[in-house]
Design a protein around this nucleic acid. Sequence first.
DNA 1: GCACGCCAGATTGTATACGAAATTGGATGG
DNA 2: CCATCCAATTTCGTATACAATCTGGCGTGC
Lengths: 227, 227
Amino acid sequence: MDGSEKSITSERIARDLAEAIHEHRLAPGSKLNEDEVGAVYGVSRTVARSALQSLAHQRLVELRRNRGAYVAQPSAREAREVFEARALLEPRTARSAALRMTEADIARLQSHIDEEHAAIRDGRPGRALHLSGLFHVEIARIAEQKTIEEFVALLVARSSLIIALYWQRRSALCESHAHEALIRAFEARDGDLAEELMKNHLLDLVTSLDLRNITSAPASLREVLSP
Amino acid sequence: MDGSEKSITSERIARDLAEAIHEHRLAPGSKLNEDEVGAVYGVSRTVARSALQSLAHQRLVELRRNRGAYVAQPSAREAREVFEARALLEPRTARSAALRMTEADIARLQSHIDEEHAAIRDGRPGRALHLSGLFHVEIARIAEQKTIEEFVALLVARSSLIIALYWQRRSALCESHAHEALIRAFEARDGDLAEELMKNHLLDLVTSLDLRNITSAPASLREVLSP
DNA sequence: GCACGCCAGATTGTATACGAAATTGGATGG
DNA sequence: CCATCCAATTTCGTATACAATCTGGCGTGC
């Protein structure tokens, strides 16, 4: 259905790196050297470079001219903006999804949650976070909104970076309960409820972050320390 | 104010090509040969390729493995999805913008409209369409939502392709009147009205398109002419 | 002792070269 | 006359080589 012609090597590498960022195995600010990336995957710099550019387009890495590629460090402001965008897109999409939801879709969402719990049991919180992000993307897919799905995927990926930087509570899985409540709304095909639950879920996420603009992005010190 | 390290050659070329697509100087389906693009801008295929990849990330061109780059031809379905995404993002953003709007912002939006009229007088409808798209992006900028601004810019660019493919009425500038009404709402700092006007403006846009899935993407004839 | 400038190392930006995949057109055989 | 197959061509995918730029340390001069 989709594009079709993917799976070019560079795209595969980009996906792999994105997953590593997603799962917090690569911390924000990490430098991604073209030679190193190429060496890791056994390809030349050309391919590694292409993968890094792809990630830059997704705002997961920042390219600095003649300096290199670094895992992005969203500022507190960017963090707020990402969640404001999600607040516009996701609740209405959850409503649409609720109305189109099939049994197979629900099963699939449930298995996502199960996997997530398994990851937590196995002590892989990064993987669990990744999966909980995919839950949101899956909802957009079920709503049959490919364009919105793309955007949600971008926003979820950036949210992962934001959580890595600004997460404050250690309360592990407030997430899952929200997701389970959503599933119940989906089972009832209750669009209104799904929309409302998603809205509150996103609000909870933002308030669980510490977005007073402490430190944030060392990238542009100039803006902070004017002479 | 933006990123900072742009103006790499490939980004400049990508912007230039994007503008050409935006203004309908490059029709949907046009082939963009890497060698030709490189020759036009006096750079090597490496740089041309990078620019084309950038456009592919914006979904303005479609890359087909071992086939080349073609200006995208959104299907009727994609067209609908693009406008559904816009319907979620832009009305609320127009409301925010109305509340933050300064005199300078209003003047800037007005000059956009003036330029648009001038372009029409000069018989450059493509340029006028481009400018009317920038009007929407500008609103997101005024709302101080950089993330949403990015998305709106992407959607506006794709809308330009969609209009090139599915525009049916020759009624030139129903657009401008909607934009002028929006400006009046902004002048009054009337968020509710701005939101409502934007919502209706987008609805008008969709209904002015012919999205019965006739023909759409000749790219894959195979799907249309099954044996 | 401090500041300025310069040089070496490293890393990215760009160009070119070679190999692989896919289409095109004609030749061949039925 | 049509279908099939093969090679010639085009175009892309990847690797490598060279040039430009930045970082950091060293030395000289004040």
